[in-house]
């Protein structure tokens, strides 16, 4: 599903070069649920941005769903994001002036679905996250957990094969975090591949596989059952 080989990413200013990723290698199979952990500044977000085609990279190769993405132009990358990737952000990133229906509708419009098809998908995905009865509410009228559920509904409405979650429970209390995590596991059980970046080791343990990133490299790769105490602490 996702295959990164020797990926490099350097951020440059006039004075400094920062190697955010160095020879980054990762292979994620279809149906996998991978948690990416690591300290601040380790390169987790850069990895997520490159994996989600939000940023370009400078060396190595990246194949997403069997397609080499290194030569895609901006429009093709946008289209691939829209069709194959669902995003869940730490701050939910809902559009405050749009109600839940219109928020979930955003990626579907870019996909070019007709109105009945969009309505069906919006209703189904909001129903899946338990918010079908609040379609006309604004994000500000919901709790943090509910807002993240709407963001998940938005990510799922296009039926992507690959879900990228950036600290999906980072802004939630533990009860809501567990609820969102359980929803992600359900989604994964239905066959959607998930890569989740998180600081939370407890949360990471609920994924099928963990990788630990340090200094822009994958330093450890574990099945959850093999996680050492040092990593999970």
């Amino acid at each position: 599903m996702l295959k990164m080989t020797e990926i490099k990413k350097v951020f440059r200013t006039d004075l400094v070069e920062t190697h955010a990723l160095r020879d980054f290698n990762l292979h994620v199979d279809e149906g996998d649920f991978v948690a990416v952990t690591g300290p601040s500044g380790s390169g987790k977000t850069t990895f997520l941005n490159i994996a989600g085609l939000l940023e370009t990279f400078e060396g190595g190769s990246y194949q997403l769903d069997g397609e080499d993405v290194s030569h895609l132009n901006d429009k093709q990358r946008s289209q691939m994001r829209n069709e194959k990737i669902g995003f869940i952000f730490q701050s939910f990133n809902l559009i405050p002036d749009l109600d839940l229906f219109d928020n979930v509708d955003v990626p579907l419009r870019y996909r070019g679905f007709n109105a009945p098809e969009r309505r069906k998908r919006i209703e189904q995905s909001l129903d899946l996250v338990g918010l079908a009865n609040r379609m006309k509410h604004l994000p500000s009228q919901l709790s943090g957990g509910q807002q993240q559920r709407v963001a998940i509904a938005r990510a799922l409405a296009g039926e992507p094969r690959f879900l990228l979650a950036d600290e999906p429970t980072g802004n939630l209390d533990s009860k809501m975090a567990n609820s969102v995590m359980s929803l992600l596991q359900d989604i994964n059980d239905r066959g959607t591949t998930i890569v989740m970046v998180t600081h939370d080791q407890e949360l990471a343990r609920q994924a099928k596989r963990n990788i630990y990133v340090r200094d822009g490299k994958v330093s450890e790769l574990h099945e959850v059952s093999e996680l050492p105490d040092a990593v999970t602490a």
């Binding site: 901006d74 429009k75 946008s78 994001r81 829209n82 995003f87 559009i95 955003v106 870019y110 296009g158």
Partner: peptide, 16 residues
Amino acid sequence: KKQIGTRRALGASQGA
């Protein structure tokens, strides 16, 4: 800005 970035992440092209 963040909304626009989010729209881009969700699949909006520059033209959109």
